[in-house]
Design a protein around this nucleic acid. Structure first.
Length: 104
DNA sequence: CCCCTGACTTTAC
DNA sequence: GGTAAAGCCAGGG
């Protein structure tokens, strides 16, 4: 179902905007919703246009926050009540995908 | 058109 | 629980 010529960036931002507070989606899930498997492409969009999007609601498959942005993301999670789990990793925590993963 | 990079995923050892 | 390798997609030079 070929959609209208919408930029990949706009599509990603739209999905991220659809993620309700307190929940998160993995890069792979976002890509899947777009009909693609470019999880990395999604990350690239966030890196460039994520400044105006809820990038913290998009995490990796393992529940870890974006590379180099764990501290900032953690503040948003606690503020929105996103279920996270403390770990001994460098990030110091991870997302509880079992409860926070967004299901459309 | 070719090559490289990247806020990734998955499988295998 | 870890690391290693290959696979995938989009953007930029």
């Amino acid at each position: 179902m070929p959609q209208q010529p919408v930029g990949f960036v706009e599509a990603v931002l739209a999905v991220v905007a659809d993620i309700p507070p307190g929940q998160v989606a993995t890069y792979g899930d976002v890509a899947a919703l777009l009909g693609s498997r470019g999880a990395r492409a999604v990350g690239g969009v966030m890196a460039r246009y994520g400044s105006d999007a809820a990038w913290w609601r998009v995490v990796r498959a393992g529940g870890h926050p974006p590379s180099g942005h764990a501290a900032s993301a953690r503040d948003h999670y606690e503020r929105e009540g996103t279920p996270i789990v403390a770990t001994a990793d460098d990030d110091g925590y991870r997302i509880d995908l079992s409860a926070a993963r967004w299901r459309p």
